[in-house]
Design a binder for these strands. Structure first.
Lengths: 108, 108
DNA sequence: TACAATTGGTTACATAAAGTAACTAACTAA
DNA sequence: TTAGTTAGTTACTTTATGTAACCAATTGTA
């Protein structure tokens, strides 16, 4: 009955990354601050879910939101230090995918 | 309209990892071959979902299933080379979590 | 012989999360 | 006045997950 338990911090980290879309959002933001509409287009996520995810990521301290009161309004989402520090994780996933995932057929 | 798209291999990789429970299953199997019942206990996943996930992981070539016709039957799940090659990814998540996730309160 | 226990699942059903599409507020430009 | 823009929200449908009971094959026990 002495169940060896998984490290709670690891579990917590993976629960962030294993939520659908969050990995892609972080990956995409690693290339710099971006606006809501750009994220929806590049990632292919609906506004409803992007909005929800960005709110969560803000609460978790991974993403910051800046409003530029231009016309029309510009709002930029950017990774915090905590968010940026996930780069090595994303890099490893990237390089694993290059080695082990076969290239999908071109859809021309 | 020239949407810069996320690398399809990366997307594919993250779609595996971002499915609930799969990260934990792979992480747990990195410590060696394990049986169905042990996985359910350590991870805290239901039999229904563990069964489903293991089938997917087998199809994706990340996990292999071996039957030992003992009594009662023993079935072991083990990472393939492809599965084991995710260790650097898990290591990075682990070390990120150590640095950025605060320790949860002890529940004694 | 009947009953219980074990492993590795499956089935049926309830709840939560995600997908889809239409809609909105605030603003400006024509 | 009408249309266009950005950054969302709302209502509704579909899919995924959680929960708990059940099952087949086998052996051990009363």
């Amino acid at each position: 009955m002495d169940t060896s338990v998984i490290c709670p911090r690891f579990e917590s980290a993976i629960s962030i990354l294993s939520q659908r879309w969050t990995g892609l959002i972080i990956y995409q933001l690693l290339s710099g601050p971006q606006r809501f509409s750009q994220l929806t287009e590049v990632i292919g996520i609906s506004g409803r879910l992007l909005s929800e995810r960005l709110k969560n990521l803000e609460v978790q301290g991974l993403v910051s939101r800046t409003v530029y009161p231009e016309t029309p309004v510009r709002i930029e989402y950017e990774l915090t230090e905590k968010g940026k520090s996930l780069k090595p994780v994303m890099d490893e996933i990237q390089s694993w995918s290059q080695e082990w995932i076969e290239a999908p057929p071109e859809t021309k």
